Computed example of a mutant assay.
Amino acid sequence: MANNNKDRKMSVEEAGRKGGEATARNHDRDFYEEIGRKGGEATAENHDRDFYEEIGRKGGEATAENHDREFYEEIGRKGGEATAENHDREFYEEIGRKGGEATSENHDRDFYEEIGEKGGNARARQRDDE
């Protein structure tokens, strides 16, 4: 029986998959880190802030469409645990100070009155539930 595979053309997808598999067999983690670093540097040289904002927005929208609240709670918890393991009290004091400064630059007295009222109401409900 003749081998019909020699007459069959390989699709672009199949060629890409086979090439990727061969590359994975022949290279280690350091190789991928290096080409990723080089690619990141080249991208940074060729694109501005608007480019990164746009791809970040698109990525965020795609993630939101594909994940639910539990997903975000889980990654938030994991991120918080990892941050807590790697940073001390001074780190949290510094980011709190910076956040407070940025917030005060962007909001007026009405904003603080509104969030104060919301916080007070939440505390009152919490006490009522106890």
Rank of each mutant, 00 (worst) to 15 (best):
residue 30 D to V: 07
residue 18 K to R: 11
residue 8 R to Y: 08
residue 127 R to Y: 10
residue 86 N to K: 14
residue 72 Y to S: 11
residue 66 N to Q: 12
residue 121 N to H: 10
residue 28 D to H: 07
residue 47 H to T: 14
residue 69 R to W: 00
residue 10 M to C: 14
residue 95 I to F: 01
residue 84 A to N: 06
residue 58 K to D: 08
residue 78 K to I: 06
residue 52 Y to Q: 13
residue 84 A to L: 02
residue 73 E to H: 04
residue 24 A to S: 10
residue 94 E to G: 00
residue 54 E to P: 02
residue 107 H to T: 08
residue 128 D to W: 09
residue 113 E to V: 00
residue 44 A to F: 12
residue 55 I to V: 15
residue 3 N to D: 15
residue 30 D to M: 04
residue 91 F to V: 05
residue 127 R to L: 14
residue 98 K to C: 04
residue 71 F to D: 01
residue 70 E to P: 01
residue 60 G to E: 07
residue 126 Q to S: 13
residue 38 K to P: 03
residue 21 E to K: 09
residue 20 G to W: 02
residue 126 Q to R: 14
residue 46 N to K: 15
residue 87 H to M: 05
residue 127 R to K: 13
residue 84 A to D: 06
residue 128 D to T: 13
residue 50 D to M: 06
residue 79 G to H: 10
residue 35 I to S: 04
residue 129 D to F: 09
residue 45 E to N: 15
residue 113 E to R: 02
residue 70 E to M: 01
residue 97 R to W: 02
residue 116 G to Q: 04
residue 100 G to V: 00
residue 74 E to K: 07
residue 120 G to F: 01
residue 59 G to N: 03
residue 56 G to K: 07
residue 31 F to I: 07
residue 28 D to A: 08
residue 35 I to H: 05
residue 6 K to S: 13
residue 43 T to K: 15
residue 67 H to W: 00
residue 31 F to P: 03
residue 108 D to Y: 03
residue 28 D to K: 07
residue 23 T to N: 08
residue 66 N to V: 08
residue 87 H to N: 12
residue 32 Y to E: 11
residue 90 E to H: 06
residue 97 R to D: 02
residue 42 A to Y: 11
residue 81 E to K: 02
residue 123 R to A: 15
residue 130 E to A: 14
residue 38 K to T: 05
residue 16 G to W: 01
residue 88 D to A: 13
residue 70 E to G: 03
residue 119 G to V: 01
residue 79 G to K: 10
residue 118 K to N: 08
residue 126 Q to G: 07
residue 115 I to Y: 00
residue 10 M to R: 14
residue 17 R to G: 07
residue 59 G to Y: 00
residue 39 G to H: 06
residue 31 F to C: 07
residue 36 G to T: 11
residue 95 I to D: 00
residue 10 M to V: 15
residue 3 N to Y: 00
residue 123 R to Q: 11
residue 91 F to D: 05
residue 128 D to P: 07
residue 60 G to L: 05
residue 121 N to K: 14
residue 103 T to K: 09
